[in-house]
């Protein structure tokens, strides 16, 4: 199990940032990703592995419709 924005989410082997975003259907174009408080640049999302127990923040930079 991992945390995504403070909520439990099932972990699986080979989970990367890109795969996580797909699973969550997070399609908004401006998202900041932090794993255990470390910012992950977008060019690392495909390869950055998420480990079991990680605390992931996917902060959507949108505050206005």
């Amino acid at each position: 199990m991992i945390k995504v924005n403070g909520r439990d989410f099932p972990w699986e082997e080979g989970l990367t940032v890109t795969k996580l975003l797909e699973k969550k259907n997070y399609t908004f174009p401006s998202i900041v990703i932090k794993i255990n408080d470390k910012t992950i640049s977008e060019d690392q999302w495909e390869i950055m592995a998420i480990e079991d127990g990680d605390d992931v923040k996917a902060i959507h930079l949108i505050t206005g419709g």
Binding site: N5, T63, G64
Partner: peptide
């Protein structure tokens, strides 16, 4: 009308307002 406060993502998705 949403022009005062539109905070769905901050609250519901980002969970930044616990």
């Amino acid at each position: 009308q949403h022009d005062e406060a539109w905070l769905i993502f901050m609250d519901q998705v980002n969970n930044q307002l616990p």
